Amino acid sequence: MNTIFQDILDYGPALLGGLRISLALTGLSLLFGTILALVFALGITSRNKAFRWTSTFFVEIGRGAPALVLLQLMYYGLPNADITLSSFTSATLALTWTASAYMAEYIRGGLAAVPGGEIEGAQALGMSQQDTLRYVTIPQGIRIALPALMGFAVLLFQATSLAYSVAVPELMSQAYSAGSSSFNYLSLFIIAGAIYAAISIPATWLSVGVEKHLAKHL
């Protein structure tokens, strides 16, 4: 126990620095992933074959390939195509792809769950198909999918630990680095795990609370 407290004092600032990078990686991946997920969700149900097949391709690859494989592809594969990216950018692109693929299915399910009466009411008011989609279907669908999206955000935050494999100095990478200096791997991994849990558990409770709140109005 004394070892853990000593490691907190010695390596706490480095671990918190890694946590900031993990949160930044999560935030950027969620931001870009949500935008792409909405595009893919609309594309999967589109009547345009090129749009539909392109969206389906990216979604299926993003869901079928492990995030670690996509990380390695972005970091080691793209340089072979004369595209050089930093480790953080590579990790952001890989996790964005994974996030957009999974969230596209959540959003697609949310859009499909919008009550038909809402759409019929919009059409009865003379709204065009584009306006109905913009002002009725998408807002309602996102609201329905919100709890699932929040739950996935927690999983994505935890998945940022894979970025250590491409030299991103995030939380787990800092724990490995500190462990290689002190050889107290166990205590440092316990500290890192506690930090992950301190964020993931309240965020999970929040998503459950949001789900219960929305269930009263859906």
Score class of each variant (00 low, 15 high):
residue 61 I to M: 14
residue 63 R to D: 09
residue 64 G to Y: 09
residue 65 A to T: 15
residue 65 A to D: 02
residue 65 A to N: 04
residue 67 A to G: 10
residue 68 L to G: 06
residue 69 V to D: 08
residue 70 L to G: 00
residue 71 L to Q: 03
residue 73 L to V: 11
residue 73 L to K: 08
residue 73 L to I: 13
residue 75 Y to P: 02
residue 75 Y to A: 06
residue 77 G to E: 02
residue 77 G to Q: 01
residue 78 L to K: 04
residue 81 A to H: 09
residue 81 A to E: 11
residue 84 T to I: 12
residue 84 T to K: 15
residue 85 L to M: 10
residue 87 S to N: 09
residue 92 T to I: 12
residue 92 T to W: 03
residue 95 L to K: 05
residue 97 W to E: 06
residue 97 W to K: 04
residue 97 W to N: 06
residue 99 A to M: 07
residue 99 A to F: 03
residue 101 A to K: 00
residue 101 A to N: 09
residue 103 M to D: 06
residue 104 A to Q: 03
residue 104 A to D: 00
residue 108 R to Q: 13
residue 108 R to T: 08
residue 112 A to D: 10
residue 117 G to H: 07
residue 117 G to C: 00
residue 118 E to C: 08
residue 120 E to G: 07
residue 124 A to C: 12
residue 124 A to R: 03
residue 126 G to M: 10
residue 128 S to D: 12
residue 128 S to Y: 00
residue 129 Q to M: 07
residue 130 Q to R: 14
residue 132 T to C: 15
residue 133 L to W: 09
residue 134 R to H: 14
residue 134 R to L: 13
residue 134 R to T: 13
residue 136 V to A: 05
residue 137 T to L: 14
residue 137 T to Y: 01
residue 139 P to D: 11
residue 141 G to Y: 05
residue 143 R to L: 00
residue 143 R to F: 00
residue 144 I to Q: 04
